[in-house]
Design a protein around this nucleic acid. Structure first.
Length: 705
DNA sequence: GAGTTTGAAACT
DNA sequence: CAGTTTCAAACTC
């Protein structure tokens, strides 16, 4: 297996060398493909935020005994769906929504997954919050733009048996054991997960709508390689029928290969990756695709077919936290993705799909684009596939048994691309902000792209601020990232907010900026320097406080001396948190009982409410005026139409009075001020009426003409 | 918009 | 670790 270069390793924190994650893989089952779906709150993906988040993961796993909870070896943070599929005693396919529900597909269940780009929806009754799943009813899962429809074909007998077991497993014919996942592929190019021993091609439920979707283009996920047979054992003690047991015996219980074809030519893709740095860019980059194949045991391969352009591809993932992404090209072509035509696999919304095969764990984030959630820091233990939203690109983070490649997923800033090992082949690390997945959910801009394909400046279109300084994701994303104005730091020091947040500069006002693709070397060096100085330099400053204390507090505390910690100079105040005992501030007024703080907060709240009220009142007035104008047929006279006052009807008067009253309520002492505000508002109302009337007349005149 | 203030980051 | 300098954001006018 290829390893990273010594230089690269030197860049990595010590935690990278930690092999615990690898050791977590049971050695007693070297060829076991059992997959354990970790709880959402314990996903290995290194997420920096403290806020737990619902996740949805898709995991493929085999050889999972009924007593073993399905654990997603690799999970993606943010709002992800966990779809775990395992063979062996069970073939649980769990899809957990934000409510952590899981959907489980039993091994005997013929399952086809077809995507339909419609709306986010999850139908079905299979919900499991634990590692073990149960499938209780037919269901169709569809997420925005990457819907997954599970069409079960269960035998009544098996169903009955399952019902008797209380789990209602869905059992299908063996030859029907196939999983068509189009959610991670291009629309109409479903990914087929096929269990070996079926002896025949699965009846693929192919996604219609894409003429390019053809059977040969489908990627087949082969689950097999292990002759060992395990009786299907439901977690709830579900009893399998004899037929089912036989069918299960025919199954290759080891998940050997998971191939996801998302692009055209696999070979081309591999070659393009070989020896190149992979970058994730928020830009939408068509024709980018990723093929991932997992091999049971210590072998696996990850293919990230990108453009054939032999260029360094930059990872640009907006956010302040990071994910490490190790990019490894496939070493075997047996299960390599097939060329799927020039069109790339498209995925408008990505959800994490975790594929685990013993030591191999891969994650394909399939994230609802509309969902915005915070994610908890998760250590990335092995492989992960980051699927972009709408951009049809994804980043694959393959699991690796290499002990020397165990990056600390919490320290390196995002956007970092770790060069492949010299002569080591196509191995590299990519550092992705931990909120990457969240961003995927939030925005569809993350892409895998070649740097040569587009300028760096455009490659970094979006840099949504992730939970930063205690701000929630929603808060952070509700406002655009502020451009930096660095002039001397080259944006390679923590002075630069962009750099500190692990973002590339984009649309900034900085001078001599090195925080971009063109200066990747310098950037990496700067990151290294920062980490040497402070290993937690890129970690969030606002974290959870001690037990019993406030949920959030500054990790280091502030050192304010003159601001009283009541201005944005103070990092605590800026993060809207109170100073804690670890702060070294002087004259702090940013504490719970501080009257100054309360006053500030009150004023801030009042201002916010005022703005909202004004907006609401104006909106209502405008709406009423518009409605009135729509309902009132203007009397067009030869003189040019109605006079403005004729528009002052009862409805308009009422709306105007509401606005005035609102101003009166908001106005504070002195009375003169209240009068002034009311008069101003009245003037505004009159102007709107006149304007609307004028517009109406103009419209009528135009109509008459 | 220019200048000042501020505190974190960087440096010694 | 402490003191100083540098830096860019926040703030003021």
């Amino acid at each position: 297996m290829d390893v990273v270069s010594p230089d690269l390793n030197s860049l990595l924190p010590d935690e990278i060398m930690d092999t615990e994650a690898i050791e977590d893989i049971p050695h007693s089952h070297p060829d076991s493909t059992s997959v354990q779906s970790e709880p959402n709150d314990d996903t290995p993906v290194p997420m920096e935020t403290d806020t737990p988040m619902a996740s949805e993961n898709l995991s493929l796993c085999s050889n999972v005994t009924s007593t073993e909870p399905t654990q997603a070896l690799t999970t993606s943070a943010a709002t992800d769906t966990i779809l775990s599929i395992s063979s062996g005693s069970q073939l649980p396919m769990s899809i957990s929504t934000t409510s952590s529900s899981l959907l489980t597909l039993k091994p005997g269940m013929a399952t086809s997954i077809a995507t339909t780009k419609t709306t986010d929806s999850l139908t079905g009754t299979s919900i499991s919050t634990s590692g073990l799943q149960k499938l209780t009813a037919p269901f169709a899962i569809s997420a925005a733009n990457h819907q997954i429809i599970l069409n079960k074909v269960a035998s009544s007998q098996a169903t009955e048996a399952a019902k008797s077991a209380g789990t209602q497993p869905q059992v299908i014919k063996q030859e029907g054991q196939k999983l068509l996942v189009t959610a991670i592929g291009k629309s109409g190019q479903p990914i087929v997960l096929q269990l070996p021993h079926t002896g025949s091609k699965p009846g693929i439920s192919q996604m219609s709508g894409d003429p390019k979707s053809q059977a040969p283009q489908f990627k087949v996920v082969t689950i097999g390689g292990r002759s060992e047979l395990k009786p299907a054992m439901g977690s709830a003690g579900n009893q399998m029928t004899t037929l089912q047991a036989q069918q299960l015996k025919t199954l290759q219980v080891t998940l050997i290969v998971l191939t996801i074809t998302l692009s055209e030519s696999l070979n081309t893709s591999i070659q393009s990756i070989s020896g190149k740095k992979i970058a994730i860019s928020p830009l939408k980059t068509p024709s980018k695709s990723v093929a991932v194949s997992g091999v049971a045991g210590s072998q696996f391969k990850t293919i990230i077919p990108l453009t054939s352009q032999p260029n360094v591809q930059q990872i640009q993932v907006p956010g302040s936290r990071f994910h490490y992404v190790r990019l490894v090209t496939a070493t075997t072509a047996s299960s390599a993705g097939q060329p799927s035509g020039p069109s790339t696999s498209s995925l408008q919304t990505a959800k994490p799909m975790v594929v685990s095969t013993g030591a191999v764990r891969m994650s394909v984030p399939i994230v609802p684009a509309q969902t915005i959630k915070q994610m908890a820091p998760k250590p990335l233990t092995s492989a992960a596939v980051v699927t972009t939203t709408q951009t049809q690109q994804r980043l694959i983070m393959p699991a690796t048994p290499l002990p020397q490649i165990q990056p600390n997923f919490t320290n390196l800033p995002p956007g970092t691309v770790l060069a492949p090992a010299p002569g080591g082949g196509n191995v590299g690390y990519a550092v992705v902000p931990a909120q990457y997945v969240t961003q995927l959910q939030q925005t569809p801009f993350v892409t895998l792209a070649s740097s040569s394909g587009f300028p760096a400046s455009t490659a970094i279109q979006t840099q949504a601020r992730l939970p930063l300084n205690g701000l929630s994701t929603a808060e952070a994303t509700s406002r655009p990232r502020k451009p930096c104005n660095c002039t001397k730091s080259q944006c390679l020091k923590l002075y630069c907010d962009c750099f500190a947040n692990g973002e590339f500069c984009n649309n900034c006002n900085c001078n001599n900026c090195f925080n971009n693709l063109e200066h990747e070397t310098e950037r990496l060096k700067a990151i290294k320097t920062c980490l040497e100085r402070n290993p937690e330099a890129f970690k969030p400053k606002i974290g959870k406080g001690k037990e019993g204390e406030s949920d959030r507090r500054h990790s280091k505390g502030c050192n304010c001396k003159r601001s009283g910690c009541l201005k944005n100079y103070c990092e605590c105040y800026e993060a809207k948190i109170m100073c804690s005992s670890i702060c070294k501030c002087v004259g702090c007024k940013n504490f719970e009982e501080s009257p100054e703080r309360k006053t500030l907060m009150h004023l801030a709240d009042a201002a916010e409410v005022r703005v909202q009220q004004q907006t609401a009142a104006k909106t209502k007035l405008s709406s009423q005026i518009s409605d009135l104008l729509m309902r009132t047929t203007p009397v067009i006279s030869s003189g040019g139409g109605r006079m403005p006052y004729t528009f002052v009807t009862k409805e308009v008067l009422e709306a105007t009075c509401e606005c005035l009253l609102e101003q009166a309520k908001k106005a504070e002492q002195p009375q003169v001020e209240a009068e002034r505000m009311i008069l101003e508002e009245f003037g505004h109302c009159l102007m709107r009426i006149i304007s609307s009337a004028g517009k109406a007349k103009a419209d009528c005149a135009s109509i008459n003409c």
